[in-house]
Design a protein around this nucleic acid. Structure first.
Lengths: 213, 213
DNA sequence: GTATGATCCATACGAACGTTTGACTGAAGA
DNA sequence: TCTTCAGTCAAACGTTCGTATGGATCATAC
């Protein structure tokens, strides 16, 4: 089963790798099973054999990507809450958004591709792309929601909820294709710079005073 | 046939209306020409006859939606620049992001649908969805970029560019499908509240100090 | 050796897709 | 009356899609 660990990867993981890349680049509907199996060097029927269907392959891909991110978000929140003082908004933003940038499996171009996969899936209108959310994601989200609530006591639940989703949205910035070809041909955001810019941006945004009625 | 001008609209505009709705809900690839013509009560061949192809229909839909938004962004910037004092960051955010919420054609549910169309198109990985950007959008963008540059002189061009795209991203917040089913079944963001929350959020974000090296 | 079970492969199937075709309609112009 | 022409229509085209099938292949267990 795991006979040769490094020589040629499992067909199953090669399918996962190929699907991860193609789903990130072209979305769920824009990626054909044939394109995946071609890139993976596998037979067309391999997807059906190893995963059952294209949708279940997507679920497996997303699970593999999301789990370490979720674990990192959880661990960092644990560490913050173990301290004596309450975490600040900046702490929470960093702990929540940081793993979205750097908790990426190896072989990725600075996390840019994996980050794009998440965003592509999240914003995909196909309903198959929306059936993967598990209970652990919800648990982490609720814990952060509670922590932000304590750090921002004046904010209504609804507005806090809006702002939390804003964090995800800003992570999606490299998916924004309007205004393509930046004015003076600005270089595409490098991974590390994007991470720091986003955290600055989001900390300020989350710390904004409540919107008056 | 079309004796009374308001009874039954043009087939062409009915196709545009149907396509606008379906593209917003299901994306470009997720919407079939047959679904559009069925919803419009037209024949399958009508798309080919009136627009040439599905991609050109999309371009026509986007053009119809984007043009008034662009015009409003432009007009509001003109009004700001005509004043004696330089516009503040809050002024610019309001002028730029406001039309994304309220410069919507009638018959829309508070602009939510049109806003979703834009975001769906922008984030669509299909390359057909990315060929519509015209010179006027670029012109408006550059003018705002320059105005923001004057209001935020300490910010590097790259980071400002990143932040400007963040505005678009946050407008996309209702496309964020993770964390679906808000915790305490929070009501979906009402149009007017979302508008005010977004402007608060984005003004704070844009005003953040430059990220240190 | 032979059986077994997992994996891979070539191939086929039916459905859905975007597009094209050619005939039909009805009002307007000569 | 005859022609014209923009518009609509049913039907079909060829392609691509996801999935299913049944046989090959190969290590291991007996």
């Amino acid at each position: 089963m795991y006979s040769t660990p490094m020589a040629t990867p499992d067909t199953r993981t090669q399918l996962l790798d190929a699907a991860e890349r193609l789903f990130a680049e072209r979305g769920f509907r824009g990626t054909s099973v044939r394109a995946i199996t071609d890139l993976a060097g596998a037979n067309l029927a391999a997807v059906g054999y190893h995963f059952g269907s294209k949708a279940e392959l997507l679920a497996a891909v997303v699970r593999r990507v999301v789990e370490p991110i979720n674990a990192a978000q959880c661990a960092r929140l644990d560490r913050l809450l173990a301290r004596t003082s309450d975490p600040t908004v900046a702490d929470l933003v960093e702990a929540f958004a940081g793993p979205l940038f750097d908790e990426m499996p190896g072989g990725d171009e600075g996390g840019a591709r994996t980050s794009r996969l998440i965003v592509t899936i999240i914003t995909d209108p196909a309903e198959e792309a929306r059936t993967w959310t598990g209970p652990s994601e919800v648990a982490v989200r609720d814990r952060y929601l509670a922590a932000f609530e304590r750090a921002l006591p004046d904010l209504s639940q609804e507005e806090l909820w809006f702002r939390l989703r804003g964090i995800i949205a800003v992570t999606a910035v490299d998916r924004i294709q309007v205004y393509q070809n930046p004015p003076a041909s600005l270089s595409p955001v490098a991974g590390e710079a994007a991470r720091r810019w986003a955290i600055t941006y989001l900390t300020a945004a989350m710390s904004a005073p409540p919107t008056g009625t």
